[in-house]
Design a protein around this nucleic acid. Structure first.
Lengths: 238, 238
DNA sequence: AATGGCCACTCGTCCGCACAAGTGGCCGAG
DNA sequence: CTCGGCCACTTGTGCGGACGAGTGGCCATT
């Protein structure tokens, strides 16, 4: 009784072609074998070959031209290699040295706006100074509504070794769904200058973390010194 | 002799289902009619229905569960609402007032690196000061390799009314495929201070524009005053 | 030499059919 | 009542065939 699963044939065909592209056997610009040739070569039906080719085209590996053939484009860029500073911040663990402050404060206007609550509503604030080697590399401030923080230890000055995301998932069963992020350039605040040891311009990132229903779970403010951080992004042009 | 084109049937099936989802006839969570029911109802083959449903699933409209059925998820979020400053810059037209300078210069190190040429290679530089109303809102500098610029009028100090992208497409048949972009925070250069009328921190955007083969067509450097610009982004969390 | 038609080749779409495999309810044996 | 098997339903995958339509080269006619 063998428990071996064979992936579907169309996926095998896709893999075969992807490997030939990555190995350089099929170079960008080359024409692929025609559908009927692949049918003969691989011993599958045309339906299967067509499905594989169309999926590859949708994923950006190849381009298909009616009446001419299918042509290699290369390994598609995922666009997922984009830097997402807010997500990183929620996943990084806190250490005793990096955790700067945990406090219950009344929400400043911009935080209240992000959280969708009234100004001066009490919230929990956690601030952390990330380090790269010896040097301070970023200041991350998280603001948590009381409803979310209650019973989660987030109001206690103990470092969260596993990061906020895992912590909220484990303790309160909250799932992160998406993050909205706004990046600008600004001067660091006085607090940030102290922690960073420099008053050079910073990338200011304001973000909110949402659950699947769209409810705001957290707000965040990051200060990333421009001399240390670059946000890279690759995108297709229509 | 009628010239009417009918879209392919699988696309018609997709449209029909999308409309029913948007009208609320099929609400999120609902089970769609089974494949065989849709076959009867719409008078097409199962192949067609399956292709439509699988494409809808790939686009995030529905979810399919083996042995259970297909279920409505709702209109998918595009994620394409992200701000792409470099793309905007290549599409914006130049006006006589905004165009600051066009010159043939030897490429500074960082530009040579972006373009993949030797330092001090001659290149064309075009600089533009974008305005929002009366106020200067950004400085955009484009660097064009001579091979690309030759015979394109890009080296002439005439404003490109239609933007660089359209111009290169029309005159030299060059197609933009993707853009890579690196954003950081920095102080504006002296030139930029003059044009912007302020020395507040700017978002510094360095980008390269590529054709489908990956060749670099242009390099760009943007200075976006932090007080005026925010780069917004929304992303899913795995 | 230029032109237009033919033809072989390509991909695009669609059909009907078949069988595998997952799910859940019904029902009879225990 | 409980459990296990059966069955009807679902989607997943695969085949072969058919016709349409776009492309480009060959070739005879002009």
């Amino acid at each position: 009784m063998s428990m071996d699963f064979a992936p579907p044939k169309y996926a095998q065909v896709m893999r075969a072609i992807q490997e030939r592209i990555e190995s350089g056997e099929y170079a960008p610009g080359d024409m692929l074998p025609s559908e009927t040739q692949l049918v003969r070569e691989l011993g599958v039906g045309r339906t299967t070959v067509v499905r594989a080719l169309q999926t590859l085209a949708m994923q950006g590996w190849i381009e298909r031209e009616h009446g001419r053939g299918s042509f290699v484009k290369g390994r598609p860029e995922s666009g997922a290699d984009r830097v997402r500073p807010s997500l990183t911040a929620t996943e990084q663990g806190e250490s005793p040295e990096s955790l700067v402050e945990v406090a219950r404060v009344s929400a400043p206007r911009y935080v209240a706006k992000l959280l969708g609550v009234a100004e001066r509503t009490p919230v929990i604030m956690r601030r952390r100074a990330a380090r790269e080697g010896d040097l301070p590399s970023a200041v991350e401030t998280v603001w948590i509504p009381l409803e979310i923080a209650v019973g989660s230890d987030l109001d206690k000055p103990e470092p969260l070794r596993s990061g906020i995301r895992r912590h909220l998932q484990a303790v309160k069963h909250l799932r992160f769904d998406h993050i909205t992020e706004r990046v600008t350039a600004r001067k660091p605040t006085k607090d940030e200058v102290e922690l960073l040891g420099s008053s050079n311009p910073v990338l200011g990132v304001l973000s909110t973390v949402h659950d699947p229903a769209g409810t705001v779970l957290l707000a965040m403010s990051l200060a990333l010194p421009g001399s240390l951080h670059e946000l890279e992004d690759v995108y297709k042009v229509s």
